[in-house]
């Protein structure tokens, strides 16, 4: 499976920031000067496959990078954008959170025309969506925590054992 983004993470070309889970890189073909991709390091195709913790971190880093765009590039605005799926215009098979710096009259087309939708359509959409929201706000928990607690306990046990033996020997 060829993924341009995964290759770029390996090559470190244009990488601005990276940590355990996330890489931020300068877009090779930017739509505006300073266009940054924020991606999960592990290959993930669509937004819904990203673990909750990592998508949260991605947004936090995107916000910091957005601030950096204001400060270092002197832009007047930024857009954060996820194109999730082909009809949304997703080009790569790796999920990307775009940070796009904006300048006045830059000629970018990132707006939409509102559609005329009647009251009936609105309420059917509302009902359909509400039927599925029971799990929203329930986040995945981290699995690594119990392992960290075990380690110090084992060391303590060893110390106790040693002490116990010494006490036995003294009388």
């Amino acid at each position: 499976m060829n993924c341009e983004i995964c290759e770029q993470i390996k090559n470190k070309k244009g990488v601005l920031y990276q940590d355990k889970n996330i890489t931020a890189m300068l877009a090779p073909k930017p739509t505006a000067a300073g266009h940054v991709y924020i991606v999960p390091k592990k290959h993930v195709t669509i937004l819904e496959q990203i673990p909750d913790k990592i998508i949260g971190e991605m947004f936090a880093k995107a916000n910091k990078i957005s601030m950096a765009c204001f400060e270092s590039l002197g832009v007047q605005g930024t857009n954060l954008l996820i194109q999730n799926g082909l009809p949304a215009g997703q080009h790569h098979n790796h999920c990307i959170l775009h940070v796009i710096p904006r300048r006045e009259n830059d000629g970018l087309n990132l707006a939409w025309q509102p559609k005329q939708i009647n009251e009936e359509e609105m309420s059917t959409a509302e009902i359909k969506i509400k039927e599925n929201t029971s799990q929203v706000g329930v986040f995945e928990k981290e699995k690594q925590k119990p392992i960290k607690i075990k380690e110090p306990e084992e060391i303590k046990d060893k110390e106790k054992e040693e002490d116990y033996r010494l006490k036995e020997r003294i009388p």
């Binding site: 957005s66 832009v75 007047q76 954008l81 999730n84 997703q90 969506i129 599925n132």
Partner: peptide, 25 residues
Amino acid sequence: LSQVLLKALKLEGTTVFIANGVAAG
């Protein structure tokens, strides 16, 4: 919420969009 929309409205994708500043729309 993107997941909910995909399921509830049987979509093929979603767009998540945030604008900071008038220049960004």
